[in-house]
Amino acid sequence: MRRIFYILLSNPLSVIGLVLVGTVVFSAVFADFIAPFPSHRGAVVDFSNFNQPPHWPNIFGTDLVGRDVFSRILYAYRISLILGVVVLAIAVPIGVTVGLAAGYLGGWTEFCLMRLTDVFLSIPPLVLAMSVMGLLEPTLTNGMLAVTTMWWPWYARLVYNVTRSEAQEGYVLAAEIIGASRLHVMFREILPNCVPSIVTKMTLDLGFVILIASSLSFLGLGVQAPTPDLGSMVAEGGNYLPDSWWLTVFPSLAILIAVFGFNLLGDAFRQVLGSDQ
């Protein structure tokens, strides 16, 4: 564990990733304390100070009804992170179980599970999410549901491939000869050896889930007003470019920082955990 940390800190790119991710997570968790105007996360109107360019104390400017853009970005991070974590918390166990079962049990189980996975993978993710959202009410919960539906197959595919190669290892044969159950072999023997790949992908994916969720709300299918969301802030501000540039630029930068940070960190994990074996 200490060694992993040391390797992370010795690579400048992963340090940048750590700092960016740390900033995003810190902002989301402590939004209540950092945000100069915590009440602006909701339906607040202040027409005495609307559509103002960056100035003190509204360092990122104010939006069309006078809310502080900086405060809203902090709360939007919170929503995005919650969404990312919930999506992965549901998608990863499903995908991992499907991948393990298909990769280890083989035969018809493998055929059915992997063809089902292929069907999901063959639909463009955004189209799939949009159709789910179109069928249901556009709320945060349904947004998570939509993104989860499109996300688990990637984990199924990843874990399936790792399982297929791990199943050839002697320790799997050893457990089978001893008489261990299939569940034991899958979850206690093979799964621990899949963890590095899964952790790496999860770190990368947190960024992508935030991006996809933003894309959905950019299209008006995600989180609904007045809840702050990076995607809908960009979409809304886009109507007033280039004059009210701060409405678009700052939320876009916020998305960029989150996605970039999680990507760098994920890459760093891939190197560290890859060299671990």
Binding site: G170, Y171, L173, A174, A175, E189, P192, N193, Q277
Partner: peptide
């Protein structure tokens, strides 16, 4: 091969 017959993560 004792390298592969023991699970590296157990």
């Amino acid at each position: 091969n004792p390298l592969s017959s023991l699970n590296p993560r157990r």
